[in-house]
Design a protein around this nucleic acid. Structure first.
Length: 671
RNA sequence: GCCGAAGUAGCUCAGUUGGUUAGAGCGGGCGUUUCAUACGCGCUAGGUCGGGGGUUCGAAUCCCUCCUUCGGCACCA
């Protein structure tokens, strides 16, 4: 009996909406589910939404909603989006599901019983955007998180439960070593190994300062750190200890594959396995990190993300709707690497692969049948083909179809589809070689029957090979062949014989041609389509501030509210106007500049600032800047000591410096 | 700066036990067929295999070095 196959997507954080990136992961997961299902395996696909955390609590409050009402609305958008892309998950989990909350607590208790939790206190910076603590070294000047510029990280001191992650370093490394395919691609595996070898710290896994989360068992003041809650979804979704699904899919003989973006690899390959080890539960078989997509060559900024709506693409019938989107994503991007979603290339690929190659093969084959075999499948004997070209085609057909499974098995859908389309291409060549129309003039009926019989069989095979990627179109193809739709049947492998022998349509089988499967798109319609689908002018629009995001989704930045401080607290900070006198790059430090700044004192001060990614040293000389003058000196080693800090905002490579007007004298105090 | 990956035809890439004229798909160009969605088929790309040096009878493929790109880590008072 084959191994049960369980595939997951990340659960998506509901502060965002479904976009091309999340659609990509989810579509790949669905295609894998379909492939393995078609091979007769028991399959289970999971997706869902991540709905806890301080950020969501605040987002809800700022909109006058309860957290639950807010996440209900946002989660529904995800749930509604996937079926439009022909994604049929077996379960859609929400971290606010009562069952999930209950089962996470069970996992927590196991970890606790294993002695891996202890109560401590934590004082550090917390970035609401990341839902994680930051060391001071991770923050930009102004205590800004590099990933969420514009909103200060918050100083947090609170009681917290720690998970003894540090003690798991060796066990994790041993596990990676013993399971080389646990983390893929290999370069990601190396990254994780070097990260763990660098040493692990115990992990804060609870919060006591807000309440939108799962209560810690036995201590209601705490809610679980969002990652403990979120990662556990992969297991809780199956129904808990001893449930049928859990015994089938979270078992040593099951194949469990987590698809993740490379940005959350660490959580899935370090924290999650450590939690599971602690709880005495089996680990997943594989964590596969895919890359990020660019859109028409541009990084997927939030505004660009919102401009390219996967649901709209899936509802574009000219490009085969959901199937067209799926094909483009699965075929164009080497899974595991970064890829580009190029609208023009999508149309080109649609025309070339689907229209001219595959679709046309169907048209010409059915056309020949209606003319030469009365619209029915001919009877012929595959074991006694009349000509060399027929036997050569049969041999290639067996070989090509036989190559496809290995690529699906190894998580390489782009290669699986490449080889699938190669069969269509080979069949087109065979039509020309066999030239049934010429055989008809010569009155050679056996040649006609063999050729058309082989071609119909190839099309039938293609429908099966394509179904994981394009279920709707594959079934339409089958309908034209007079065949019923495919569906996965446990225990019945639809592909078993593809590489050894063929199973032709029976002689006399009625065909049902019904027009072009993939109508090609001519130049004018292509231009119209692209202007409709592509985000309005990438360049100028991108310069416009992305403030506000899409309607109804106020940007997180605008809603960030730090706790109030007293005037006395503020007065402790001495802000002064300074003039940059000199600036030079600090050798071997990418971000650091060594500045001397006149703050009205006899000697200019030395300030080390992380500005080098944005500013050339010369560009800063003469600038009137705002200096935090009474910050404790900081030693960078090698004689570099910083006596102050410059105020700035933005990500490291796009900083905006806080400056003062020329009328402000160096040394003037700001208040 | 440290660690890792990569730099091959216009584009996306394949190509490591070193060995004949360096490959595929797409796009482009030329030719051709007519069953077909003006679609197919055939031919065609003359690319310093990032630069330089070395080992070898012989290197895209091994060694050294440099450059560039992309990740991860460090650096941001």
């Amino acid at each position: 009996m084959s191994r049960p196959f369980y595939v997951t997507t990340p659960i998506y954080y509901v502060n965002d909406v479904p976009h091309l990136g999340t659609a990509y992961t989810t579509i790949v997961a669905d295609a894998l589910r379909r492939y393995h299902g078609l091979r007769g395996r028991e399959t289970f696909m999971l997706t869902g939404t991540d709905e806890h955390g301080l950020k969501l609590e605040r987002e809800a409050v700022s909109r006058g909603l309860s957290p639950k009402a807010f996440v209900d609305d946002m989660s529904a958008r995800f749930r509604a989006a996937w079926p439009k892309m022909s994604v049929e998950a077996d379960h859609f989990i929400r971290t606010t599901d009562p069952e999930h909350e209950r089962l996470v607590q069970e996992v927590w208790k196991r970890v606790e019983q294993n002695g891996d939790l202890y109560l401590g206190s934590y004082e550090d910076w917390y970035c609401v955007g990341c839902e994680s603590f930051k060391t001071e070294k991770e923050l930009l000047a102004g205590n800004e998180c590099p990933l969420h510029p514009g909103r200060g990280a918050e100083k947090v001191r609170e009681e917290t439960y720690f998970f003894k992650l540090a003690s798991y370093a060796d066990r994790l490394l041993n596990y990676y070593d013993a399971h080389p395919s646990f983390i893929e691609p290999e370069s990601r595996r190396n990254e994780v190994i070097s990260f763990v070898k660098g040493g692990l710290h115990d992990l804060s896994v609870s919060r006591a300062s807000f309440s939108w989360g799962i209560p810690v068992p036995g201590n209601d003041k705490h809610v679980m750190y969002v990652w403990f809650d979120a990662l556990a979804n992969y297991w809780t979704a199956l129904g808990g200890f001893g449930s049928d699904a859990e015994r089938k899919y979270w078992a040593p003989n099951a194949e469990v594959v987590h698809l993740v973006g490379k940005d959350i690899l660490r959580f899935h390959t370090v924290y999650w396995p450590a939690f599971l080890m602690s709880a005495g539960m089996p680990l997943p078989s594989k964590v596969f990190a895919h890359g990020f997509l660019t859109i028409d060559g541009q990084k997927m900024s939030k505004s660009l993300r919102n401009a390219v709506d996967p649901v709209r693409l899936a509802e574009t019938p000219e490009l085969a709707g959901a199937d067209g989107l799926r094909y483009q994503l699965l075929r164009a991007v080497a899974f595991g690497q970064d890829g580009d979603f190029d609208h023009a290339a999508m149309v080109e690929r649609y025309n070339a692969d689907l229209g001219k190659n595959l679709g046309n093969l169907l048209s010409r084959t059915l056309g020949l049948c209606s003319k030469l075999t009365a619209g029915k499948a001919p009877a012929f004997d595959p074991g006694a083909l009349p000509a060399d070209i027929d036997r050569a085609f049969l041999r290639d057909r067996l070989e090509l179809a036989g190559q496809v499974p290995q690529y699906w098995e190894s998580l390489a859908p782009h290669l699986a589809l490449e080889h699938t389309l190669r069969l269509a291409s080979r069949a087109n060549k065979y039509v020309d070689e066999a030239a049934p129309w010429a055989a008809a003039k010569a009155g050679n009926q056996p040649a006609i029957d063999a050729a058309l019989g082989l071609l119909l069989e190839a099309l039938k095979t293609l429908s099966e090979l394509l179904w994981p990627a394009m279920p709707t179109k594959a079934n339409e193809l089958r309908k034209q062949l007079g065949l019923g739709p495919l569906s996965a049947t446990v225990g019945a492998d639809a592909w078993t014989m593809h590489n050894t022998r063929i199973d032709p349509l029976p002689g006399g089988h009625a065909l049902a041609p019904s027009g072009a499967l993939f109508p090609t798109i001519d130049k004018e319609r292509e231009a119209e389509l692209l202007s409709r689908l592509m985000p309005a002018s990438t360049a100028p629009a991108a310069l416009a501030p992305a403030a506000g995001g899409i309607p109804g989704h106020p940007s997180a930045i605008a809603d960030s509210v730090a706790p109030a401080i007293s005037y006395d607290d503020f007065a402790k900070v001495e802000l002064k106007v300074g003039v940059v006198k000199t600036a030079e790059k600090v050798p071997k430090k990418d971000k650091l500049l060594k500045l001397t700044v006149d703050v009205g004192e006899p000697e200019p001060r030395t300030v080390i600032a992380g500005l080098a990614l944005t500013f050339a040293p010369d560009a800063l000389v003469g600038q009137r800047v705002i200096v935090v003058a009474n910050l404790a000196p900081r030693d960078f080693g090698k004689g570099l000591v910083s006596h102050g800090m410059l105020l700035a905002t933005g990500p490291s490579e796009k900083l905006v410096l806080a400056t003062a007007p020329d009328s402000a004298e160096p040394g003037a105090r700001l208040k």
